[in-house]
């Protein structure tokens, strides 16, 4: 089977795979027309590559101390300078990408499916299930996320795992809302009625027919939320409740560089640029994805 442009753009796809690949191709094609989305995709791609190949990209060890070379300004040997323990900041930023990517992915993996399932169940069954689940969701939604995350981490104890759990706990309700709204529109569609008449169970209908249709709006929302997740994680790290030293987490690095901000500005600013770049990348990509996948809320 040859994957040609024609095969991908076929108006009458012969298999599910062909339809899906074709749709993916169209989405990519449209994304490619949006310069900001392309920049975003490149940044995210760069983040993933940096995280995967960190040992080869970094020029030094992220934790090796060299007290004779403390607080050196950026130079050809230390591209971003060195910190108060003589560690190479560039290498720490590079290895920090692993932590950021881990946080972002784990939060997405925990929060999105949780929200999806809660929202789909509430929307599909309606009635009491809906009322109870949605009032819980609403209670979470009407509370300040960062403060709640802070309180959770305070209770669970500082550390990167707890930070991830706390962020995930505060992020799922938004996804539940979306999934419910989507489910409500799909629930009474005729193809769902048809599947129901064939005797499919509720579990099967939700898992096989409703959840797949929620994914595109979910992907958009999750991508757009990534920046917020990164900022929250960095904030927790900055306060000292997230990743603990000597982990090269960007927020924690800024926190350590805070003392030197006046004379050795690079210690605190460099990790900040990394955070901004990656967050901006997710924002650009999310914006572009929304324009393509969710045109009715286009370019909000």
């Amino acid at each position: 089977m040859i994957i040609s442009k024609q095969w991908l753009l076929d108006d009458a796809p012969k298999s599910r795979t062909q339809a899906q690949l074709g749709r993916l191709y169209v989405v990519c094609l449209q994304l490619a027309h949006n310069p900001l989305a392309v920049i975003g995709a490149i940044i995210i791609g760069g983040l993933i590559i940096t995280a995967l190949f960190a040992p080869w990209i970094a020029t030094h060890s992220p934790i090796a101390q060299d007290l004779s070379n403390r607080l050196l300004p950026p130079s050809s040997t230390h591209w971003m300078g060195t910190d108060e323990l003589g560690r190479d900041i560039w290498s720490r930023v590079v290895f920090g990408s692993q932590i950021t990517l881990t946080i972002v992915m784990l939060v997405a993996v925990i929060a999105a499916p949780l929200g999806l399932v809660v929202g789909a169940i509430a929307g599909y069954f309606g009635g009491w299930a809906d009322r109870v689940l949605m009032s819980i969701t609403d209670i979470f939604l009407s509370m300040p996320k960062l403060i709640l995350a802070l309180a959770f981490v305070a209770a669970l104890g500082p550390g990167i795992e707890n930070a991830i759990i706390a962020i995930a706990i505060t992020s799922w309700p938004a996804y539940a809302r979306i999934a419910r709204a989507e489910t409500l529109t799909i629930r009474n569609a005729e193809f769902v009625q048809a599947v129901k008449l064939q005797g499919a169970s509720s579990t099967r209908i939700i898992a096989r027919h409703i959840l797949p249709l929620c994914t595109s709006s979910m992907i958009v929302r999750v991508t757009l939320d990534m920046a917020g997740i990164i900022l929250t994680a960095a904030g927790l790290g900055f306060i000292g409740l997230g990743a603990q030293p000597p982990l090269p987490e960007w927020g924690a690095m800024i926190s350590r560089g805070r003392v030197f901000i006046l004379d050795q500005w690079w210690v605190a600013t460099m990790p900040g640029f990394a955070i901004i770049l990656v967050s901006l990348g997710f924002c650009f990509l999310g914006d572009g994805l929304r324009d393509v996948l969710d045109p009715k809320h286009g370019s909000e």
């Binding site: 900001l36 900022l231 904030g235 900055f238 605190a268 600013t269 900040g272 955070i275 967050s279 914006d287």
Partner: peptide, 28 residues
């Protein structure tokens, strides 16, 4: 495009970082 980018920067810059940089530049 400029206004959109400024808007997205508001979603991407850590508040604590901007505060630090602001202090270093405008105060110090």
């Amino acid at each position: 495009q400029v206004i959109r980018t400024v808007g997205l920067l508001g979603y991407s810059i850590p508040a604590f970082w901007l505060g630090l940089v602001g202090l270093a530049i405008f105060y110090a």
